[in-house]
């Protein structure tokens, strides 16, 4: 009897404390996309001279295969925006390569992720709800970037692409339009 009580108590503790057993919400729904540089498809590179930063955009391949321009992105679509510093000259201005592009310097300095999950939008008020998309930001080692306290800026900026064909994406929808018909 005593054994059973202890076992039961242990079980309850496990249910309460094990992260896998917790209900996740918001950015916690998104796990770091380990190995995205190799296993995802690059669909954009944006020079940001104002921030002296080069941004690389990746999508998971299953979603890229399933996505069709003009239709909302599939559930599970994971879009990555990874940052690198730009190489700068002695005056701190970006150096350009022979093709006029900014030159990335070193490894990624940050990884922002936008992911769509069925029903995730229900976690949010109508005022701040971008369909079923959530946002998260990580350090390059995969740990969460604790300096990012709010994703209001993500929701706010991406809300400008609310048409079904855009589905809250800036580059991915144009990429589908230009590279994947139907």
């Amino acid at each position: 009897m005593r054994k059973r009580t202890i076992a039961a108590a242990t079980g309850i503790a496990a249910l309460t404390l094990t992260p896998a057993g917790m209900v996740r919400a918001g950015a916690d729904r998104i796990a770091f996309p380990q190995g995205f540089e190799k296993s995802y498809t690059l669909y954009g590179v944006i020079d940001r001279p104002d921030r002296k930063q080069v941004r690389f955009f990746y999508v998971d391949r299953a979603s890229l295969k399933a996505a069709k321009y003009g239709q909302p992105m599939p559930d599970g679509t994971t879009l990555v925006m990874a940052f690198k510093k730009a190489t700068v000259d002695a005056n701190g201005e970006p150096v350009l390569d022979k093709n006029g592009r900014m030159i990335p310097d070193g490894d990624f300095t940050g990884v922002a992720v936008q992911k769509k999950g069925k029903g995730w939008g229900a976690d949010h008020t109508e005022k701040q709800q971008n369909g079923d998309w959530e946002y998260a930001e990580f350090k390059p080692d995969g740990s969460r970037n604790a300096e990012v306290k709010s994703f209001d800026a993500c929701f706010g900026c991406h809300s400008a692409r609310a048409k079904p064909a855009e589905d809250y994406t800036f580059l991915f929808a144009p990429y589908l339009r230009d590279h994947k018909k139907g």
Partner: peptide, 9 residues
Amino acid sequence: TTFGYGVNP
């Protein structure tokens, strides 16, 4: 937004 030309000032 076009792939291969991306820039945002």
